[in-house]
Structures are given as structure tokens and as C-alpha cells.
Amino acid sequence: MTAVNMVEALNKGLHEAMTADDRVVVLGEDVAKTGGVFRVTAGLLDRFGDDRVVDTPLAEAGIVGSAIGMAVYGLLPVAEIQFDSFVYPGFEQIVVHAARYAWRTKGEVPASIVIRIPYGGGVRMPELHSDSPESLFVHTPGLKVVCPSTPADARNMILAAIEDPDPVIFMEPKRIYRAGRQEIPDEPPFTVGNGSPNGALNEYLSKARVAREGDDLAIFTYGATVPLTIDAAEKLAREERVEARVVDLRSLYPLDVHAIEKAASECRRALVVHEAPRTAGVGAEVSSLIHERVMLDLEAPVGRVTGYDAPFPQFANEDDYLPSVDRIFAGAKKVLEF
């Protein structure tokens, strides 16, 4: 076991995947020589050479589009989008091609690519370095959208995303990249390139995880708001004697409907928390699923604590925009006191 942060965990996963399967290639802006602006791809160039770890021109449609072509040929590209909002020039390639290649080829040639996107606010960056664009991809049939919140999940999920034949949008919560260390096993959970062993893809790419036990309120969240939500749950326990169950969704498409039903039904009250804007966000879908399926088990309508339907602000105001422990606490009390 080794204690690693999320950056190191992702880096370890990428090393493991590239070692196991020489079809895996890494491409993006500044991923090779500098190892990425967040250093997630550090060391890969030295280890695997400049054929497989490539600093590309600064053009996201070119990055995603050429990654699709490489996948059509038979490689397994992992493309880095340097910051969340930089994905927009590559949006057409993702939506009209990556997401549709399997469908368009009788299921025989999916665009087997992973698009890593460091996303979200709280890191005091200039405009368009802090967006949470996950809903755009959740709303695009043909994509899988996942988001780890712990180092252990980050490593397992990047391996599973590379192994998965379908295109995976891999949202990386950059605010908690280095937030803490976690012991992870030295050996990978499975070897990339050996098919889908023991349901690993299913386990790591479509299942939610209970991050804190509790029976009085279910709070669904993912990414950088998971630790904040756990803090809010501790505060609820201290100050309100309420035990909130925190569910880390991990997979945003497909959603783990059974985990959502179970937690909402057992806790009878539910709240969804995310950084992305509220309207048609992931929270809207989770709320809708709960109301459609277990409404009669509920004591209150499902609440939401989210970013707002406004551009992510200049960073002097980002703490006003982002869900905080206090906002989550207040949102939880509203559901509890309904």
C-alpha cells in the first residue's frame, strides 16, 4: 500500500495502463515534456517515449478528432483537455463523432477514447478555468461520464475508463487533486487489455458509493463537493443530531438508479449537491428519478444545492457561487424542516 493524492493516483493508473497495453497513447497540450499543467501525466514521456506520449498543437477539435481516428485504427487514446472550458472547441467532435461512432458502425468500432477534463472552481483562476460542463455530456447519448472524488477511485476508474470500449468523459475535480492522501494497493485491480475481468468495468464505471453512513437524509453528490458534503454531514450530526448518508455518484451517465432509489427510500429525505449550474443539471435528473420512483417514501421534496444559472464568476466571487459547507448545511435543514 502507498499513500497517494489524486494526481499521483491518476498518474499511477496511467503508468499501469500504458505498461499493460501498448495500444494506450496519451495526447494533449503540454502533457509530455511538462507532464501536464497539473502533472497528471508526469514521467510518461520518459517511460514510454514520444510516439505514445505526445504534446499536440493547441487545438481541441484536432486533439479529440485525431484521437477518434487513432481509436478507429485500433489504439486506445487518452486525451487531456487542459481545463474544463477548453473542451468547447472540441465539443462537436465529442458529440457528433465520439458519441456516435459505435452506433454508426453497428457497434463494431466504438470510439474507444478517454477524454480527461480537469474541471471546477475553487482554485482562483482566470475566466473559463473553473466550469463544470458535465451536464452537456450527460445529455449526449453514447458517452459515459464519470467523476472520482478519492485517489483510490481515481486510479481504479481511469483504468476502467481506458478498458471500456465506449468513449468516457473523465471529469477530474481539480480542486481536490492534492487535497489529501489515501492508501491504495500497489497492484492494479485488473490488467488493462484483458477484456472486462470480473465485472470491473461495471463496478468502477457505473456504481455509486456510500461515502458516509446515515439514515435521516440522503445527500447525493460527486467530485469536489463530496468532501464538503461529508463536512456538512458532520456538522448536521454535531448541531442537529441528524445522520446524513452521503452518496458519491461517481458515474453521472449511466446513473446508479438502484443506489439512488435505495438511499432516498431508506432516508425518506434527499438533497443533491453539485457545482454545475442548477437548471437541467445532474441534480435535476437525480431529483426526477427519485420523484418518479419512490415519491411515496418521501417526507419532503428533493432539495438542491448547486452552482447558479450564471457564468462562473471572476474568482473574487467564486466562493459566493460554489456550494459551501454552510450552503449544504442550510439546504439540508430546509429539506429536514419541510
Partner: peptide
């Protein structure tokens, strides 16, 4: 024009292989 990067990717992959 969106298939042009795919053609580049295929030739790039062939070059790598």
C-alpha cells in the same frame, strides 16, 4: 470537415504502429 481529423488520426496511429 469533421472527418478530416479522423483521417489524420488513422495515419498517425499507423505511423506509431
Amino acid at each position: 470537415a469533421t472527418h478530416l481529423p479522423h483521417a489524420v488520426g488513422v495515419a498517425w496511429a499507423a505511423k506509431i504502429r
